[in-house]
Design a protein around this nucleic acid. Structure first.
Lengths: 151, 151
DNA sequence: CACCCAGAGAGAACAAAGTTCTTTAAAACC
DNA sequence: GGTTTTAAAGAACTTTGTTCTCTCTGGGTG
């Protein structure tokens, strides 16, 4: 699906704050309700616009520790990979997981209450799937965190 | 601010899909409009609930490359740090940035159209701030990516 | 032990959205 | 140059968000 300048403007607004009324967004992009609504509907149907969510405050909820976990494995068969995927997807403290190119096989972003909670997660993970080498990078400060793509 | 079980249920629902009506959410958590609305308002005021946004589809928008960038620096003075922060915050392709404990100083998550666009970003970054060592981890597959905290 | 008061939930009433429809204008294509 | 298609604007309609009032429950007090 092809987007024009107005679509991009709308998308930018919705990525920043989707809580406003159609009228406000229409004014922000220099249009009126109906065309904006139709464009949003089309972007929804086209899958360009995904879910609409609220962002909760991690600190206020007591998730004060954030780790980036670099995982190396010696086993690259489909069975192992399947079990690793399942483990990662079923654990709610794993916010993000990527399979990588290069000597590090996976990176995880894990949000937990504290270092102890990370260790509980780590022990559970390595007992569920065998990994060759794990390095945890502890975040001291979240400098930036956005869900908005630069459209 | 203290949350009870109902607050957590509401928060879970809103983290999954904030696009539904109050009636639907009230039904999902086993309550009615008014109390749900009051609880949401309180969580907003308390900062537990942050912005409400739409999640755009990176692939559909042509952001097909995702890098995790590990940065080491030899300069740790306030001036350098300030310039690095500014560089990172002002670049829209940087989705996430953390200051780390340990021998790696920073990790960035960068979303770009392709490898060439990453190189443009990389060149611009190292010309703006001096860094000692940079390692880029290329994501082959996004296994998981959620904004929902396990409340 | 009865009474009163504070807090929270349910449902009705009201205001403000979202959604659809119709008309109009503009642009693209014969 | 006329015709068809596309999109925008504004009005009409429907759904939802927001407020209000009433009721119930639980806790403290005379």
């Amino acid at each position: 699906m092809q987007l024009d300048g107005t679509d991009r403007k709308i998308l930018r607004e919705l990525q920043l704050d989707a809580g406003r009324s159609l009228d406000e967004i229409a004014r922000a992009v220099g249009s009126s309700k109906t065309p904006v609504w139709n464009r949003i509907r089309k972007m929804r149907e086209g899958g360009v616009i995904g879910p609409q969510v609220v962002i909760a405050d991690a600190d206020k909820l007591g998730f004060e520790a954030c780790f980036f976990v670099l995982v190396r494995t010696s086993e690259h068969d489909a069975d192992w990979q399947g079990r690793f995927l399942h483990a990662v997807r079923s654990r709610p403290e794993v916010m993000e997981a990527h399979r990588l190119a290069g000597d590090i096989d996976y990176i995880l972003k894990v949000r937990v209450q504290n270092a102890r909670a990370y260790d509980v997660f780590y022990q559970a993970l390595i007992s569920e799937v065998k990994v060759h080498n794990v390095t945890a990078l502890l975040s001291m400060e979240e400098i930036k965190n956005t869900t908005a793509l630069p459209v």
